[in-house]
Write a protein that binds this DNA or RNA. Structure first.
Length: 557
RNA sequence: GGCCCUGUCGUUUAACGGUUAGGACACGGCCCUUUCAAGGCCGCGAUACGGGUUCGAUUCCCGUCAGGGUCACCA
């Protein structure tokens, strides 16, 4: 009999998807898919004080966006549901009863402060704390006696106090523990609710998990889980404890709460600055609670590619060989194995993540780049959607990551322009920017093509340097303007414009720089940008002339 | 503090007893160039320390040190 490979990711509904969690989910997913198995999503909501649905949605959305699809779980169901722990209490109760019956657990009536005293005494005596089990109750009668004292009971595991346990970890090899160092952990609270470890073991078995793949921080918790499983007579899954994702430049676990500290890392700060710049322009909230690189939403909103994030995260703790680094998701699936997984914690490097993003973005077909940038231009107010499911919508969160091809768009500042021309312009801008757009939101750095011709903003520094304080350049610009005016609309291409320009500077015996900077500022308002002649072609003759004339008029006035 | 894990350039990793210890990102320089990117070339840069085992240790063993995790009626 061959058993199916089944892995699970079991997030608790915290309201956001942590980047470290994604890494764990990804490895679970890759291992399952590589081996033709199933990846299951289970929700660890045993702590019921939270609003589960609301706090779960961002996590489901994030995983879906990344393409980490689950075969069983919320939304898709499956044969071993329910996939919410809060709905499985009957199973946990049955397990606790069985543990009690078998003598593997007991009811305990100790008060927290009494336990605390024992603990302190142990520390003072420099010995390992071992609960005296003084308030343990094994019969109904004992229970009633303690309850009469006003005590409330919990159920504790009755851990072995001798012998050793060896865990065969797929990544770490054999790890040995002394049973004596394990505590009598609570598995059911006084209010009858259940503790995670109990629920976890019961569910992993019920849901037929074959491989428990999780972060290293759970390694120390594994003995008690094994004890529960063995006491219940359940077969053990295979374990694989992944190194966790650490802070930039440190080995401490990455946390959502320490944004201020991470901001001192210049690469991290750079990432945040870029993201915030984009989010601000498309009208998104940028509070640290929801918008920060530890949370997946940050990347989605800034315009990262899922495949880039997956690629980077896969390399954080896994390597194929000494040279390959660039992988698409399907390649990761076919190449993944525990052999390549590292043992030590890997710190999150924002600069390297960004490098992967650049690479994947540069390999993106231009149609897809187009489909991904529209959202930013619409949300920032440069474009309007004329028809289709998103007609009239402007809020970023109401717009899709990828705009459907053929959606008719209008240019806010040039309402007269036909949708086909708008689409052609945007396509041209994307082609012109080449590899300058690193994240989809970067399109907002090239909106000079969407500005009005008579009122586009002029970069102050560039304006002063290239025009105000360079009268020679202005003279040349005036003259070159006439040459441009003489070009027919059909001839107004970057090739012929470049030829025209080169002829002009040769004739004038000058270097390109003596005119081209002035021309750029006049035509785009900026000191930097895409290739000059591509820019002129995109603008077209009429718009170029209008722009130059406006600037010339400003200089005279 | 007990227990557990980890320790190769700044970061991420390769080398599974024999290499001038390799790559990528970052960084520095040069080239290209109308700006900004990109690209090309070059450079900087590591086996935590101490003992063993071995003809030979990054690799195996022991110790030290360092970092991290875990010890909740959180997950």
């Amino acid at each position: 009999m061959t058993t199916e490979i089944r892995t699970r990711f079991a997030p608790s509904p915290t309201g956001y998807l942590h980047i470290g969690g994604v890494r764990t989910a990804l490895f679970c997913y890759l291992f399952a898919k590589k081996n033709g198995g199933k990846f299951i999503l289970r929700i660890d909501d045993t702590d019921q004080t939270r609003n589960v649905e609301e706090a779960l949605q961002p996590i489901l959305d994030g995983l879906k966006w990344l393409g980490i699809d689950w075969d069983e779980g919320p939304g898709v169901g499956g044969p071993y549901g329910p996939y919410y722990q809060s709905q499985r209490n009957d199973k946990y109760q049955a397990a606790v009863d069985k543990l009690l019956e078998g003598g593997f657990a007991y009811r305990d009536y100790a008060r927290p402060e009494e336990l605390q005293q024992e603990r302190e005494a142990a520390v003072a005596a420099k010995r390992t704390f071992v609960y005296s089990r003084r308030w343990a109750a094994y019969t109904e009668e004992e229970c009633r006696k303690f309850e009469a004292e006003g005590r409330s009971g919990v159920v504790r595991l009755k851990m072995p106090r001798e012998g050793k346990l060896v865990i065969h970890d797929l990544i770490r090899g054999d790890v040995e523990f002394d049973w004596a160092t394990e505590q009598d952990h609570v598995i059911q609270r006084a209010d009858g609710s259940f503790i995670y470890h109990l629920a976890n073991v019961v569910d992993d078995h019920d849901i037929r998990i074959s491989h428990v793949i999780r972060a290293e921080e759970h390694l120390s918790n594994t003995p008690r889980q094994i004890f529960i499983a063995q006491s219940l007579g359940l077969p053990l899954p295979q374990y694989a404890h992944l190194p966790f994702v650490a802070e930039p430049g440190s080995k401490t676990k990455l946390s959502k709460r320490k944004l201020d500290k991470y901001l001192k890392n210049s690469d991290f700060a750079k990432l945040v600055r870029q993201g915030t710049g984009i989010a601000d322009r498309v009208g998104l909230e940028t509070t640290a609670d929801g918008f920060n690189p530890v949370i997946v939403d940050f990347y989605r909103q800034t315009g990262y590619l899922p495949e880039a994030i997956l690629n980077y995260l896969a390399l954080l703790g896994w390597a194929l060989d000494d040279k390959s680094e660039y992988f698409m998701p399907n390649e990761l699936i076919s190449l993944f194995s525990f052999d390549g997984v590292t043992k030590s914690a890997a710190s999150f490097d924002p600069a390297k993540l960004f490098a992967f993003q650049e690479k994947h973005m540069n390999n993106l077909p231009s149609d897809e780049k187009y489909a991904r940038t529209v959202r930013y231009l619409v949300a920032a107010g440069w474009l309007k959607v004329l028809d289709g499911p998103y007609a009239g919508k402007t809020a970023f969160n109401e717009l899709p990551d990828l705009f459907p091809a053929g959606t008719p768009l209008a240019l806010t500042r040039h309402p007269e322009m036909a949708p086909e021309s708008v689409a052609a312009l945007l396509k041209g801008v994307i082609a012109g920017t080449g590899d300058r757009i690193k994240v989809s939101g970067d399109i907002l750095d090239f909106v000079e093509f969407f500005e009005g011709d008579g009122d586009f903003p002029l970069d102050e520094k560039a304006w002063n340097k290239r025009l105000v304080s360079d009268p020679a350049a202005v003279g040349l610009l005036k003259e070159f303007r006439e040459r441009l005016a003489a070009v027919s609309a059909a001839e107004y291409t970057h090739e012929s414009l470049e030829a025209l320009f080169m002829g002009f500077i040769e004739e004038k015996q000058i270097k390109p720089a003596q005119l081209i900077h002035a021309l750029r500022v006049a035509a785009t308002g900026k000191g930097v940008g895409i290739g000059m002649f591509e820019a002129l072609e995109l603008l077209g003759r009429e718009r170029t002339l209008k722009r130059i004339d406006r600037v010339l008029a400003l200089l005279n006035g």
